[in-house]
Computed example of a mutant assay.
Amino acid sequence: MKGIIRWVSPVLLAGSFLLGTNVASAADSQARNLVQEESNRKLVVDFYDRFFNKHEVEQAATVVAEDYIQHNPEVPDGKSPFVGYFGGYFKDNPQSRARIVRSATDGDLVYLHVHSTNGKADRGQAVIDIFRVKNGKIVEHWDVIQAVPEQAANSNTMF
């Protein structure tokens, strides 16, 4: 077999396609700037807590870029529309909270695994949020959201 990479783990290969990266750069961990990644993670975690838990929408959004790109089909692109959307949502849902269960980074991406609820009686939703950070600003966001079921086919939790 010609080339630098002779064997690629199916998991790494699948992950690289899912994340839109190439295998060679995903395997090259020496190119990562872990100090910058941790700074990005802290920026996103602080933003998330202030925005989604304390509902400090305007204040927390100072780290969101004006031309913010949103991939959730229910939320508009741009900082102002994003702030307006959630300002209204939190006004109607003051008990809404989002507990970060775990976080991770990879380059300019920050991943959050979140348990989002709307009051104590709500089982909530499991959320994976992915943020792209550039020059100290959140510039892009993706998410996948799944309701926490009343009963599961296994004894594992979603968190």
Results as ranks from 00 to 15, higher is better:
Gly3Tyr: 12
Trp7Lys: 15
Val8Gly: 11
Val8Phe: 04
Ser9Asn: 04
Ala14Met: 12
Ser16Asn: 02
Leu18His: 14
Leu19Gly: 14
Ala24Trp: 09
Ser25Pro: 05
Ser29Leu: 15
Gln30Ala: 15
Gln30Pro: 00
Leu34Asn: 08
Leu34Phe: 08
Asn40Val: 00
Asn40Pro: 00
Val44Gln: 01
Phe51Asn: 01
Lys54Arg: 15
Glu58Ile: 10
Ala60Ile: 06
Ala61Ile: 05
Val64Asp: 11
Ala65Arg: 10
Glu66Tyr: 04
Ile69Phe: 08
Gln70Glu: 10
His71Asp: 06
Asn72Ser: 15
Pro73Thr: 15
Glu74Asp: 14
Gly78Val: 13
Gly78Asp: 12
Lys79Met: 01
Pro81Cys: 01
Val83Asn: 08
Gly87Glu: 11
Gly87Thr: 15
Asp92Ile: 06
Asp92Cys: 05
Asn93Phe: 07
Ser96Glu: 06
Arg99Glu: 15
Arg99Tyr: 14
Ile100His: 04
Ser103Glu: 05
Ala104Pro: 06
Thr105His: 00
Asp106Val: 08
Asp106Ala: 09
Gly107Leu: 09
Asp108Thr: 06
Tyr111Ala: 15
Leu112Ala: 08
Asp122His: 12
Asp129Thr: 00
Val133Glu: 00
Val144Lys: 09
Glu150Leu: 13
Asn156Leu: 13
Thr157Cys: 06
Met158Tyr: 14
